[in-house]
Design a protein around this nucleic acid. Sequence first.
RNA 1: GCGGCGGUGGCGGAACUGGUAUACGCGAUGGAUUCAAAAUCCAUUGCCCGCGAGGGCAUGUGGGUUCGAUUCCCACCCGCCGCACCA
Length: 843
Amino acid sequence: MSRYEPRVIEGKWQRIWADEGTWEVPNPGDGGFESDKPKSYVLEMLPYPSGEPHVGHLKVYSVGDAIAHFRRRNGFEVIHPMGYDSFGLPAENNAIKTGEPPRVATERSIEAFREQFTEWGISIDWTRELATHTPEYYRWTQWIFLQLFSRGLAYRAEAPVQWCPNDATVLANEQVIDGRCERCGTEVETRSLEQWFFRTTEYADRLLADFAKLDSWPDHVITMQENWIGRSEGAEVVFRCEAAGIDFPVFTTRPDTLFGATFFVLAPEHPALAELVAGTEAEQAVDEYVGQVARATVEERGDEGRPKTGVPLGRTVTNPVNGEEIPMFVADYVLMDYGTGAVMAVPAHDERDFAFAGTFGLPVRRVIESVTDQAGADRDEPGAAGELPYTGDGPMVNSGRFDGLDNREAYDRIVAWLDEEGRGESSVNYRLRDWLVSRQRYWGAPIPIVYCEKCGMVPVPDDQLPVELPEVDDYAPRGKSPLEAAGDWVNTACPDCGGDARRETDTMDTFVDSSWYFLRYLDPHNDAAAFSREAADHWMPVDQYIGGVEHAILHLLYARFFAKALADLGHLGVTEPFANLFTQGMITRDGAKMSKSKGNTVSPAEYVGRHGADAARTYVCFMGPPERGGDWTDEGVEGVHRFLARLWRVTDEIAGPEGEEPEPFETPVAGDLEGPAREVVAKAHWAIEKATGDFNRDFQFNTVIAAVMELVNEIYRVKDDLLDDYTGRRALRFATATATSLIQPFAPHLAAEAYERLTGDRVWETPWPEADPAMLRSDSVTIVVQVNGKVRDRIEVDEGAEKDEILAAARSAGNVARHLEGSEIVKEILVPGKLVNLVAKPS
RNA sequence: GCGGCGGUGGCGGAACUGGUAUACGCGAUGGAUUCAAAAUCCAUUGCCCGCGAGGGCAUGUGGGUUCGAUUCCCACCCGCCGCACCA
């Protein structure tokens, strides 16, 4: 008898798969392409290569690989590639500290990742491997940038931006969390700088509308993106300051409350502010206030509970609906980067305006009655007893000719009237802003633009791509890109006129790299295009995307934007890149997020070394439903290892001596079986049914594996009775082969070895098994008998037993009869094949 | 505050359409094997009462619907995640 030695088995099959290129798939037009097979693109989010893979990686690739295997064995041509998101700040920060070039550290990490993925036995088509930091890849990142530029979707503009003083670079809004840098936690400042943007706002509506195409995306991911895009409908209304001769458009979602506007507020950054107060009494106070706000951190300003502050401007604007002059203020609760940077304040019906009015003693005028005193009113609504602010619906008051109308009705009428008068129009606003893509850092794809004294901003022609990242000595950020120091590289000739020109020295946000990598996998060696349209048309969209929720907004939104933009440019036939998304939960240890500082990290390599890749992979899939998190325990991995060893031992016992030709493998037929042989074969069919169902139902891998464990337990229960005769051995061999076949997506090496020993076949080339309906039924069934809803006994009845027969048996079952004594049955309920409930009351 | 997800044994979790609550694993206890241990195999394992047969109580709390509720409805408590001065 041979021991279960995972390292030996795993090495053996990994070599076979590598030598044979088992997981490689050809493109349409290539030799060996099978056009009759349906395709399936299974993709996990690509890793950022830093150090070694951690358990999060183990989980995402174990889950993805299980899906890939399952699809292959269900007849799909599965493309399952791997690559590295290898530009990024950690490598660069390391370079600043140690002086080691980011490329060197990054490529070392890539080696380590590749090695681990190979040891885990993930079924990857390595011929499609890519790394985003290589010129072969970022050449096409630059090309896409220029494609966007040619359509005006990439543009340069001065804008107030979020600046991280520690990383000395700008951040996208998405990279600022609670006023702090997502990466280093430093408080973010606001600066006004010239930066590159992608016009994501142009796609806001389509990004929202196309959620309809993504029915299997988790709701919370869609909700987060919807919140992020933040579409709100309302109206733009113009308030004019006659004295200064300036029009102030505002965006409001409540044009129905226009008659209640009693003051008007500008954001401290509003461009017209200085002009409004220049040379007036208010000038000094306003300047002081604006300076004070500018010094405050983003976090301080964002605090909602803080008392409202502001300064009167000594100016008024005219309310277009009633001609009223209302006073102007500057206040930091109004944000420059949402709407127009100015708001009409309606204190009676807006909590923030109400608070401000309270502080400054401003009038509050109700224009909507609360509906408290009407029938069916909700008394718990704020403002129910008539107090303000009231944000609910009701009839209009103090609103001239709109009085008495329901406010929803008045909304439409007021907007229509403003439109006729040319003083406003209905309007839609988004929280989403354009994507800021330039970074003042070294380790990224250079932006392929040249500034010529004569010609201005000139795109680098396609045939001069890539603009290669030059070598530099000093990676430290100084507020501008370290590339500024590479003089030979910066100074160049203008592609248009040949005159003196300078290169753009900013690099691209690494989210640009990862917004299209799934397309490059489809045609990774193409040096004439980013990818061929034919390959993309065949493989896209990604049928199953797998990754962590932490990318719910950033990466997924950007990739969706790219797909739409590339489709509009004619390079792609789909507008949504990821048809189905599965987000896996995080693995913790001792209930806490793993971190080096806590010293509670789990090194996958250690466990793979100790128990084998199959055990480590199966364990992360067994911990719980994969979309939820789970707590890693050593006992848990050991338990799974024990189970695999148990499966291995029974295989060894049933298959006979190693190296011997297995007996011909036949599927046992229902009619030929009885007793334990029938039971174990029936259990195998039950396990097939259960595993297949749970696989298809949201990837419930924990219960798939539990079903295989049950089957193995059943094999142990009956094996000593069956090993002696031919029929028994055949039944056992079928059951054991079924167990190995079903565990294959999780433990592919053990499965390959065991299945070959049992059947002579290659399990990964064997179609996923199908349950025989005849074997799922049994001749007799156990019926639970309840009296008044409590289980009192169980009876065995024939499969086809008549209703009356079952009820009679139920009534006379020993313990049931006792409970029925002295009572009269008033109702009998029969759930076929399951249960009888006898409802009785004292007679 | 708003939105989402969740609360089941000592622990991770299962229970698909309202029908045997606690599958499977971990841990624990006992037994077999062993000189002994490890490993392995077998058995027991929600709590309480009972020698037993059996009975009672249990799915965060309180109500409701139903012959029957972890599952549906109402109110509430707790935990996690996201958003949060967005006009």
